[in-house]
């Protein structure tokens, strides 16, 4: 067990990935790049669950299974989001969020 890298190293990497994802979420105006930022955030959360499971509670599998279900839900979310993006592109010929604001106000 002493060959595992310390817990805080993993947590720092996943924190960095999470906040880079939030940064991208704020600066990007394109629906697909926003979706990619969301994938970064989900990935960092997955990493956190698995690392806590493996290093702090190696007598359970809960974190591993939670990450598996998160991956499955991310797949469902990506497929529905891309269907919506294609539909938006067909109607507006663009996927910039600033141009698709008909439902605002």
């Amino acid at each position: 067990m002493n060959t595992l890298v310390p817990l805080s190293f993993f947590l720092i990497v996943s924190t960095a990935m999470f906040f880079i994802g939030i940064w991208g979420f704020i600066i990007r105006r394109n629906l697909i790049t926003i979706l990619m930022s969301v994938e970064l955030i989900l990935n960092s959360v997955n990493l956190n669950f698995v690392v806590f499971n493996r290093i702090l509670f190696p007598d359970h599998f809960q974190g591993l299974f939670f990450s598996l279900f998160v991956v499955a839900i991310a797949a469902a979310e990506a497929s529905v989001a891309i269907a919506i993006i294609i539909n938006i592109y067909r109607r507006f010929s663009t996927i910039e969020v600033d141009s698709v604001n008909e439902m605002k106000y």
Binding site: I32, L35, E39, A75, A78, I82, I86, I95
Partner: peptide, 14 residues
Amino acid sequence: GIVVLIIFSILLTS
């Protein structure tokens, strides 16, 4: 899976 899906949608929309 997901990255291929994203690349497909990139090729379809931009």
